[in-house]
Design a binder for these strands. Structure first.
Lengths: 167, 167
DNA sequence: CTCATGATGTTATTTTATAACATCTCTGCG
DNA sequence: CGCAGAGATGTTATAAAATAACATCATGAG
């Protein structure tokens, strides 16, 4: 499966008001950062918006291209990586390890157990926060004397919509 | 956390006969491949052995260096990547997504749900096959109409031995 | 206003992975 | 055996992802 490098159109099968979705995410980010005294600068906010351009995880270099295109001049990779680092630290964005790509966090400020259903069809990464999974991982770890710091769950498969499209 | 690029010494805290561990893995690989008619060539077998040099996931380029050093001449990355691809396909090796590294499979031929406890201390990746985790993921997916193809679970934390060392 | 801290810019480099094509080497079959 | 063809490996080049080191800029506390 390849990472989305296509223009940042919202997910085809997304039957939702994506503009609202993004606006919401940005508003929550503003609120959270204000509350924490974290600096959601113009650049960081722009990168966050670009990450949210769809529900498909986007690679750092795809975001870089968007940024460069918007500005009409080329930007350095570090610029993007630093912004992403900040956003991940603040829990506003998740990194999908198996894709080397980034996706907006569905509920920043909340749990962050980092569970994703990644569709091979449309590329969407649906974030879930399933307590049974969290508990099962914790229990399995405890049974082995392992102290959990950061659980990562990335499930590849096919989402409902894509199954219906290719029956 | 950094990937192991150090010489392939067995894990410090591993209180087991690692030579036996490796010999076992190779023997099982031989048997499995013979049974399947898959060609475990000299190169592939050497790469498998190098992956098994410790229980720490090793990067492709680390393996490449070992290989080059053994032969006294430099080898191309593709050589290693192709061998790894084969080994992963055969389920003899797992790729740890969050580390871009590879580790020997504890029980080839069996389940392969791909669950790992990765220690930040020693770098070891312990493979587990916990049915509660598997079930919980499957249930969560079904509840969302998502068809699971390949679940990936990589839990960062601190293993028992490392906790005892740094109390 | 000033200064210290944190953010961004710039250039270069490292690390990880793949593409395209040539050559070799087994393995089955005549 | 010896040959054909598939699969494995070699070779060269390049793409993709990430970081290092250092300079400059901006912002907010005092």
């Amino acid at each position: 499966m390849s990472i989305d490098t296509a223009p940042p159109t919202p997910t085809p099968h997304a039957r939702h008001d994506h503009a609202h979705c993004v606006a919401d995410a940005l508003a929550r980010a503003d609120a959270l950062c204000a509350q924490r005294g974290a600096r959601l600068t113009t650049l960081r906010r722009r990168v966050l918006e670009l990450v949210w351009s769809s529900h498909r995880p986007r690679g750092a270099y795809a975001i870089l291209e968007d940024l460069s295109q918007q500005d009409g001049k080329s930007t350095a990779p570090l610029t993007v990586y630093r912004a992403l680092e900040f956003l991940v630290e603040q829990g506003l964005v998740h990194r999908i390890e198996s894709l080397n790509a980034y996706v907006g966090c569905a509920s920043p400020g909340a749990s962050h157990s980092g569970q994703f259903l990644v569709c091979e069809g449309c590329g969407d990464a649906a974030e879930i926060d399933d307590s049974s999974i969290r508990t099962a991982i914790e229990s399995a770890a405890i049974a082995r004397g392992f102290r959990v710091q950061r659980p990562t769950v990335e499930v590849r498969g096919v989402c409902k919509d894509c199954q219906e499209k290719h029956p």
